[in-house]
Design a protein around this nucleic acid. Sequence first.
DNA 1: CACTCACGTGGATACGTTTTCAAGCATCTC
DNA 2: GAGATGCTTGAAAACGTATCCACGTGAGTG
Lengths: 352, 352
Amino acid sequence: MEKRATIKDVAEAAGVGVATVSRVLSGGSASAATRERVLAVAAQLDYRPSALGRNLRQRRTGGMGLLVPDLTDTFYGQLSEGVLACARSAGEPVVIGSTGGDPEQEADLIGMLLEQSVDRLIAVPSGDADAWSPVLRAGMTVVFADRLPLLSSPEDVRAAAVADLMALDGLSAAAPARPLDIPAVVADDRAGIRTAVRYLRGLGHKRIAFLGGPGQESRVNAFREAVGAPVDEELVVFGTGSRDSAYAAASGLFQSRPDLSAVVAGGNVLGEAAVLAARELDLRVPRDVSLVMYDDVPWAELCSPPLTVIAQPGRDMGYRAAELVLRAGTRKPRSVVLPTELIIRGSCGPHR
Amino acid sequence: MEKRATIKDVAEAAGVGVATVSRVLSGGSASAATRERVLAVAAQLDYRPSALGRNLRQRRTGGMGLLVPDLTDTFYGQLSEGVLACARSAGEPVVIGSTGGDPEQEADLIGMLLEQSVDRLIAVPSGDADAWSPVLRAGMTVVFADRLPLLSSPEDVRAAAVADLMALDGLSAAAPARPLDIPAVVADDRAGIRTAVRYLRGLGHKRIAFLGGPGQESRVNAFREAVGAPVDEELVVFGTGSRDSAYAAASGLFQSRPDLSAVVAGGNVLGEAAVLAARELDLRVPRDVSLVMYDDVPWAELCSPPLTVIAQPGRDMGYRAAELVLRAGTRKPRSVVLPTELIIRGSCGPHR
DNA sequence: CACTCACGTGGATACGTTTTCAAGCATCTC
DNA sequence: GAGATGCTTGAAAACGTATCCACGTGAGTG
């Protein structure tokens, strides 16, 4: 196990000062002759600058943090792949954490990132806005993906609801002033849900349920808006994030309201739970109940019938978020809303 | 954005030297009085030791690297969750990379990790053994997960085949001397495949095909061994890792050999491709073709019929690998072989 | 020719921590 | 009571890099 060459070794071998080596390697000015010599020596010694020294000197770790609720959820897998793709092309490391949707674990992981001096973070937030403002004060550049943190105080919630609707109105609409001024890359939940609800309405469905998970406030709001008042509150139910609780929620919904004829699932885990629960209760899809699921995942096509879905570009979402967080120094990052698409397959039928 | 307190600040505020602060915080000896004072001051200043300084001093980054082929593959999602769970409980960061199954990208990512002085790595290897030996020489502690790297030279390959069979013979059998002495956490592929093949045989199937992906040499070998010579080589086909190529392989297999009555898919992406291709070709599962898939993923139950699978404990695999790599300093890590389980659902029927 | 200016260069410093080392001090032993 | 022993403590060095600053050299200008 031979030890790695340091910048000092290169400097000595090339007969120059360490400062010159540093400049050559980080693109500073140097004469053509010395540049060439330094590069040759560096290559010959197989010199790789130590990120440790650099990081300490610049008082920050390169790369970025990535916080997702669950890597077992295919959508977050897609999102992560997008982030990693962007990071790879930039040659930057990404340190990842899985929060389990738990604000406490999220806070722990943020603490760990802080300790590592990771100052750029892409997060699918679980904690509320109050939990995130300290992070900003710590000097972190944060970009939210997939969703925004829930606002905590009542008046904030009101303001945010308004802001959300405004933000989603146009695809590239400028984000309104929010209590928490953090850029985000999210899907156009409002349009996606609206399209799905209209589609179901067009098939004759009247009693449409929403099966949601944690952090899907924006989708629920969109659902409420799309169905119009008055919303039958028994028809919107929530799981807590685990597959078990999603199944319980779905099963409970089907049993307590046999009159519902369609359900929109707020995410692929919820969708999975819905088809499982429906099968268990001998409800046929789409004969007895129509189903449209948020997230297009490979296995949606495998179901029989194949699932009609609201597709959101998970990979793009991750990639864009990574771009934003990397360019944060240069450009002031603006929020991005990505389009969704209703992909009609076989899980929705006419109301009978 | 107030700047963080350093150890020096704490030392001054507590009226002690920095060395004392360091000792108190890293569990060294100190008098009860000073310990208490230092702790109080540290808490009051909200002091968090910077990993940067520590890392530079110790010439190594804490935590571990994690290299998987594709986070979109649910199995690797499970494996990653296991690694993250272990890392979280140890308070260690994880820097992740997705190789896409490409040895070149893998090498790039390894280079990045080296640059970061990450000296502990959990990898699902894509490159062959020759690509990995330099990593060891660089002083990295590596633990392979899910599979072993392919050996490159012909004699090595022979030796490895023998070694693999030996290694898999007992669950906790000591790993034989291999050209590459790296501990690994893998599933008992041999037993898993053997059980599946026997099960299919028991249903009367004679022409059983194997649909494999990259890095599944161990499973193919096990398949060859289980069916016994002579193996109809047309019945073992490979995709390159992408979903498209998996689909192409599956589709090609079904079309070129309409006489096959059962197929074993070497992974969940392959299994997905198989049911898609079968449906496209109007082959009914399990009436026309029986299917058993490696990997138990949540959506296996969603298919109709639900898929019979060889379950391997992805999460455990990741957790164990992380444990091994973290304890590498203390204990000399030994390879681990985890049990598989044939979960019979509805995708296999009697041969007709 | 003297003076300025621009540029290439290297020495020195700082980043925040851990660890070594020796010194200070109190206690114990003969 | 003198020496030895043990424990606590702080000063200082080191880790590998980027950057500030000052120095020297060459060209360009008056």
